[in-house]
Each structure stands twice: as structure tokens, then as C-alpha cells.
Design a binder for these strands. Structure first.
Lengths: 241, 241
DNA sequence: CCCGAACCGCGTAGGAGATACACCTTAGTG
DNA sequence: CACTAAGGTGTATCTCCTACGCGGTTCGGG
């Protein structure tokens, strides 16, 4: 089986060569530098040049370690994941709740993850470790392997969606200078734009002050709402067996 | 209320000017050209230059109509949405299933949507129309406005997650040349990489042949699985009232 | 009727960034 | 000890985005 080069690098399966000068760097050092830049200045500040100068080599030296910038981003997306939460004798539902929350919090702590990666199923050792732990938590439930996998996938997707939403609300996210500062302002803009005839249901929702915090919801309540939806669904599935 | 410029453009709220030559273009024409390029050659082929030459003007002329390339992408992301499905007297659950599926299918038909947009809550007229229809479908259920909104949000997020996954599986998505051709190959790579001691649960899942299609799942079954999870959750919530 | 302001389209140019390539250097290998 | 694979680098190219200013156009007001 021929492993794609990115994958080989993620798993340290590079053929070790003896010839030539000792490498001055390794992939881990490069990734650490890249992630520091991303954490401090955002993903846009991560360029081959900026990473190289931070580790003290010329730009082109990085290409001895990663195949392209795209590959660097893929590697970063895996390396950024910490260890998944410990299963402390928790029931599957409690563990998956903590697991999903930790996943979401990671994405909020490092918002550049929302832009890096994407579009590829997880292939790195750290992401797969997370997946393993979720599957493990479901192992006593009687679900078949396919169901467990899909449940874990749905939870991962939810963590991503929720983090994207929260992050987008928080700062307007800089995207195209949308300049929306928070939920309240979002609601105000919608109220300004919407024609109640064309958008009857949405106008009503806006009018009810949902975005203005009238109901006292927090980001965390939002998160729990969707999470419970999924966990309830999983629970129903388990009981149905 | 001061509207951000992107938003104003999406809604045609630009102050119409009388002076000067007639504009040769309008935003809709530019967006149509940009979307044709994205459909045919992918988002990477969309540059200010390529769009401009397709509509027959110089690159810089586009900046009379859009503030930046980023803004162009935001506008595209809204304009790409077709009309939401008709509510044909369907029950809320059936409608939302169709709605979510249409949403996902759109993302699969135009995968560049997975890369454009992101990070901003919906502010365009077309996306908001979708949201309105989902809220409308929930209007007879007894849920409060906040619950309806969050349910719709969760479904939107799910459509996105699922489309991302399916698309990523289909072609390796080109991302960093990951070169994974499909679920079967994905499973094979995992089998190659995973140490069963470090990844016990995941190894078992891979071993069960879930990725090889051993259980006869299709992309569509995958989609329905997560969808039913959410809809079941929503239904439970409604009944609990 | 005419003038100036506002606005259109465009050419130029600057600046960033990714990366192919050739070169010298280094260190195992035969 | 010569040979060769591999590391680090400088240079060069190519693609983009976009700031700026020019010349031509149209309309509103006097």
C-alpha cells in the first residue's frame, strides 16, 4: 500500500536517510513555529517565508520537510489537536458531551483551524485518536460499527458548525469586513433588512428578540441545545435496539 | 443603522447615482461569471483577472462593483443558493428532511461553496430565505423562537458537515494531494497505519469493514443517519412540551 | 447652454507569496 | 578517499491582489 506523502509525514513514516548533512530541523519544529504564528497573528500571517524566518532558515529550506504550503496546513490541522478528554468512568453520553465540548473549545481557542484543513477526512494520528475515543465510548451500547462511526462523525460535525457560528458572531470574523459585532447587532441588521412579507417566519423570530438576548441564551446554551438534539437521537437509537 | 458595504450590495441597497457614464456591468453579471468559472474550474480559478476577462472588462473595473475579492466570494456564496424547496403541505419533519437534503445537494453540486463563505452568519437574501422557510416549517410545533432558530441552525450545520465529508471522500478533494480515492481506500490506509494498541476501538471499526462497504451503506444512508438523529431529537423536544 | 462634479473603465506599478532550479556544502558509502 | 545522496540557500519566475491616477462621460445646476 502506497501512502500519500502527507500521510507518511504525519505518521513519521518517512524513509530515514543516512547520506548528506544532518537535518537542522524536523517537521515538529516547523509545525510548532507555524502554529505559534497562527495563534498570534492568524492563519493569513502563516506564509512559507514567515515560518522559515521564525525557525531561522531560508524559505526554501522548508521544502525539504513539507511538500507544499497546503501540506503544511494539513499537518498543522492534525498537530493542533491536544489529547482527547480522559474517559473517567463516565457513561457514554456524559463522555461524548465532554468530548464534543472539548472539540468545540479547541476550535474556538484556535480559530485558524476553521480555515485550515477542511475537505479531507481525518488521517492524522491525533485526530484519529479523538475518533478512537468516541468510538470506544459507544462500544457498550449495542450499536453496530457503522452506527458508532456515523454518530461520532455527526458529533464532530456539530462541534465544527457550532464553533464556526460562535466565532462568526464574536468578531464579524473579519470576513469581507462584514462588521457584525455580535448577536445583538446581527439581529438589528436583520431587522433593518427583512421585508416581513418576503420573510415572514424569520421576521417574527427577529421581532421576538431572540438575537438581542431576550431569552437569556448564551453561547453555551446554544451549544448544548444542538448537542442534546444529537445525543437524544443517539439515545433513542440505542433504546430502539 | 449603518449597513456594512457587502450587505448593502447583497440587498441592492447601494445608493443609485445619477452622475457619470452608465455602468457597463452590474453585480449580478459579475457574480454569474464568477460562478461559471468556479463551477467549471474550481474556486482556485476564480481570480479578479479571470472574472474580469470573462465579462469583458479590465481587472480593475470590477472594483467599481465589489470592494475586494473577499467580498466577491461572500456575494457568490449567497447568490449560489437556489430557491428553497416548496412546502407542499408537508409535515414539519418531512419538509425539513427535504430542506436539509436540498441544502446538502447544493453543496455537493457546487463544492466551491465549501471553501467560499465560511465564518460569517448568513446575511444575504437567498440564504435568509432558506432560513425563513425552515422556521416556517417549525411554526406549528409549539417550539419557542429560540428553539426553532437553533434547530434550523443545527440542520444547516449538518448539511455542511455531511457535504464536506462526502466531497472529501469522493476525490481526495485535491487537498494537499491526500490522494484518497474513496471510502474503501480510506479504510485501507487506516488499516495500514493504525496500531491496534493505540487505537483499539477504531481498529475494530476498520476491521469490521465499515469503510469497505461491508454493511452496504451508501452516501445517502450516511446522510439519513445523521439527519434522523437530529430530527428525532427535535421531535422529542416537541413532544416534551 | 455650458461647466463642473461625480463616476466609469483602464493602464501601470507595487508588493506579497509560492515554488522550480541550480549551486555549494556535508557526510555516509564503497 | 572519491562518490553520491541530501541539506540549506539565493535567484528567478509566475500569479495575484489592489492602490493610484488619468482621460473620457454624463448629468445637474446655474
Amino acid at each position: 500500500m502506497e501512502l500519500p506523502p502527507v500521510v507518511a509525514r504525519m505518521w513519521g513514516r518517512e524513509p530515514v536517510s543516512r547520506r548528506g548533512p544532518k537535518p537542522r530541523l524536523d517537521v515538529a519544529t516547523i509545525l510548532a513555529a507555524a502554529m505559534e504564528i497562527a495563534d498570534a497573528e492568524g492563519l493569513a500571517a502563516v506564509s512559507m517565508g514567515s515560518v522559515a524566518s521564525r525557525v531561522g532558515v531560508a524559505t526554501m529550506a522548508l521544502y525539504r520537510y513539507v511538500g507544499s504550503k497546503d501540506e503544511l496546513l494539513t499537518l498543522m490541522a492534525d498537530a493542533a489537536a491536544p489529547d482527547p478528554p480522559e474517559r473517567g468512568g463516565l457513561a457514554w453520553r456524559d463522555y461524548l458531551a465532554a468530548w464534543t465540548r472539548a472539540n468545540r473549545d479547541l476550535l474556538l481557542r484556535r480559530p485558524w483551524l476553521l480555515l485550515a484543513d477542511r475537505l479531507t477526512p481525518p488521517l492524522g494520528p491525533r485526530r484519529l485518536l479523538w475518533l478512537d475515543r468516541a468510538l470506544d465510548a459507544l462500544s457498550g451500547t449495542g450499536l453496530d460499527e457503522g452506527q458508532k462511526l456515523r454518530a461520532a462523525t455527526a458529533l464532530t460535525g456539530y462541534a465544527l458548525s457550532d464553533a464556526t457560528l460562535v466565532h462568526g458572531m464574536r468578531a464579524g470574523a473579519g470576513r469581507a469586513g462584514a462588521g457584525i459585532a455580535g448577536a445583538a447587532e446581527y439581529g438589528a441588521v436583520l431587522g433593518e433588512l427583512l421585508d416581513p412579507h418576503a420573510y415572514p417566519a424569520l421576521s417574527e423570530t427577529v421581532g421576538a428578540g431572540v438575537f438581542a438576548g431576550a431569552e437569556g441564551w448564551t453561547d453555551d446554551d446554544d451549544f448544548r441545545f444542538g448537542l442534546d438534539l444529537l445525543l437524544d437521537g443517539i439515545e433513542a437509537l440505542i433504546e430502539r435496539r
